[in-house]
């Protein structure tokens, strides 16, 4: 009997722990006065917003302003030109939890938080890459704006002159400029960007894209930035 009781208790405890873990994995418990992702998305443009999110990548720091890709477990937030000292910028390593107060803004279709301030909080989270392979080319893509994503089995298409990539959108750039390349996902062709502020010419992804050949099959990872439509900022390319 004692053994059965012990087993039942152990099972209950294990279930509770599992359930607890599961709950933590799927939801963020927000501090008082902090919006959920759904509340943030429902807020009007220009409204003041307060969110908690985790740094996933940093794009740039300049003039005490940082541009940062963040995410919680429900969605992503792009923080544009957030007030940030150089010392604090160094603390914004991937996973860092921050509470952000700013104004919701929309620039060329990109939903972001502008004129924000932030404070670092306890907690850490790295978002897994959302598999967007089947979502590219559908109306659902916009629901994942700014999220860390992956696409598997994309095929490199030629640019207008047949090259595998261009420096800048019309090839007017040079080494160090943003890289543009086209990939076919299913039946549709999309333009992807290696944003040079996010991944400069010294990064692996920059080198990988420069070595692409038309017809290569690749897996990619990146952030689903928006500029008059999807304009993904790619952070990793793996040639298969």
């Amino acid at each position: 009997m004692k053994k059965i009781l012990a087993l039942v208790l152990a099972a209950i405890i294990a279930l509770a722990v599992f359930a607890g873990c599961k709950k933590t994995d799927k939801q963020d418990v927000k501090s008082e006065g902090v919006m959920t992702y759904a509340e943030y998305m429902a807020a009007e443009i220009d409204a003041e917003v307060v969110i908690e999110a985790y740094v996933q990548a940093k794009q740039s720091w300049w003039d005490n302003k940082a541009t940062v890709y963040t995410q919680d477990k429900d969605g992503a937030y792009f923080l544009y030109n957030m007030a940030c000292s150089e010392a604090d910028y160094a603390k914004l390593v991937p996973g860092t939890k921050i509470k952000v107060t700013g104004h919701k803004a929309e620039w060329a279709g990109e939903i972001e938080i502008a004129d924000a301030t932030f404070e670092i909080e306890d907690g850490s989270y790295i978002a897994p890459a959302f598999d967007a392979t089947a979502v590219f080319g559908t109306d659902d893509l916009i629901k994942h704006m700014n999220e860390f994503f992956t696409v598997k089995g994309a095929v490199v298409e030629g640019m207008d002159d047949g090259a595998a990539f261009w420096y800048s959108w019309d090839n007017s750039g040079e080494d160090g400029s943003d890289l543009y390349f086209k990939v076919k996902i299913g039946e549709n062709v999309f333009t992807f960007t290696v944003e040079s502020y996010l991944c400069d010419a010294t990064t692996e992804v920059y080198g990988a894209v420069k070595n692409l050949k038309v017809g290569d099959t690749i897996d990619v990872e990146g952030f689903l930035y928006w500029y008059e439509g999807a304009n993904p900022h790619i952070t990793k390319v793996t040639v298969k």
């Binding site: 794009q59 300049w62 003039d63 544009y80 060329a108 959108w169 543009y180 502020y197 500029y227």
Partner: peptide, 16 residues
């Protein structure tokens, strides 16, 4: 085609 989305650089002048 994407003209240019480097909005950050436009703010560079203050630090300059």
């Amino acid at each position: 085609m994407i003209k240019g989305i480097k909005r950050a650089s436009a703010l560079a002048l203050f630090t300059l």
